[in-house]
């Protein structure tokens, strides 16, 4: 077989998490559940914020989020969303909308969730974070996509940091993190002095960090789509969500 885990977004030797979830029957229930839990763990905050934006208070939003994920992990069909087609993000959004719409009917029903979710959600931290979100007229859908994009980028940068830390080069990473985006050409020299290195070595390192980050980003996106061919589209959508409408240029 061939190559590049690094060269291409495709993960080698294993299906994406979302394809594991979406393709019922292709794997056993536990693996599916595990994959779904991992995905939810990564992206639960945007859903919580979505629920909050639908004018729910802090505690009921936490309950609803918890309940939603518990049902999802138990395999409840929350909507007619067909997991076999499309992306994890749109599946979650459709499911969540449907869950919230039907939520009034179930109001009297027994509370579910709680300890049955296999991942942890820190709602206190989420509430603090939500409080710092800008108050604007963004629609909940758009806000969800924007936060999703942020989760994706933050998560990818954290992974890159982890890789550098693992190689004992955390200090280098921290010093050069600011160069990941933007053109820092005039500041390379100072960074080189700080690191006791040459300017060209700094440039090479920054270049490698950027390239690796793109690989990680694509790997992370890949986990939420069924097929590598959707990566580009998903990234485009997420980028569009990050850029205010009047500044969109692509």
């Amino acid at each position: 077989m061939t190559t590049p885990a690094s060269g291409t977004p495709e993960r080698r030797f294993r299906p994406t998490r979302w394809s594991l979830v979406a393709r019922a029957g292709s794997s056993n229930g536990e693996a599916r559940r595990q994959a779904l839990a991992e995905l939810c763990q990564a992206y639960w905050y945007p859903l919580y914020a979505f629920v909050r934006r639908r004018a729910h208070d802090e505690s009921s939003a936490a309950d609803l989020t918890q309940e939603f994920f518990a049902r999802l992990l138990e395999g409840d069909r929350l909507a007619d969303a067909d997991p076999a087609r499309g992306r994890f993000r749109s599946f979650l959004l459709v499911s969540l909308r449907s869950f919230l719409a039907n939520q009034s009917e179930r109001q009297g029903a027994k509370k579910r969730g709680g300890d049955r979710t296999t991942f942890s959600m820190d709602f206190d931290q989420a509430a603090t974070r939500f409080a710092q979100e800008p108050r604007d007229d963004e629609t909940p859908d758009r806000a969800l996509n924007r936060q999703w994009a942020l989760e994706l980028v933050d998560r990818s940068v954290a992974r890159l940091r982890g890789e550098y830390a693992g190689r004992g080069r955390l200090a280098t990473f921290q010093r050069l993190e600011g160069f990941l985006s933007g053109d820092g050409s005039d500041r390379y020299r100072r960074a080189a002095t700080d690191l006791g290195s040459s300017e060209s070595a700094v440039k090479v390192t920054v270049h490698r960090m950027r390239v690796r980050l793109q690989e990680i980003l694509r790997e992370e996106v890949l986990q939420t789509v069924e097929h590598p061919s959707s990566i580009e589209e998903e990234m485009r959508d997420l980028f569009a969500a990050l850029v205010p409408p009047h500044r969109k240029k692509l």
Partner: peptide, 24 residues
């Protein structure tokens, strides 16, 4: 700014992937 201090621009990082069409 949602409490996480970022030293990078998430939008630029996402766009970089689209612009370069994943150069490696």
């Amino acid at each position: 700014d949602d409490g996480k201090s970022r030293r990078y621009c998430p939008g630029c990082l996402l766009r970089a992937g689209l612009d370069e069409n994943h150069s490696d």
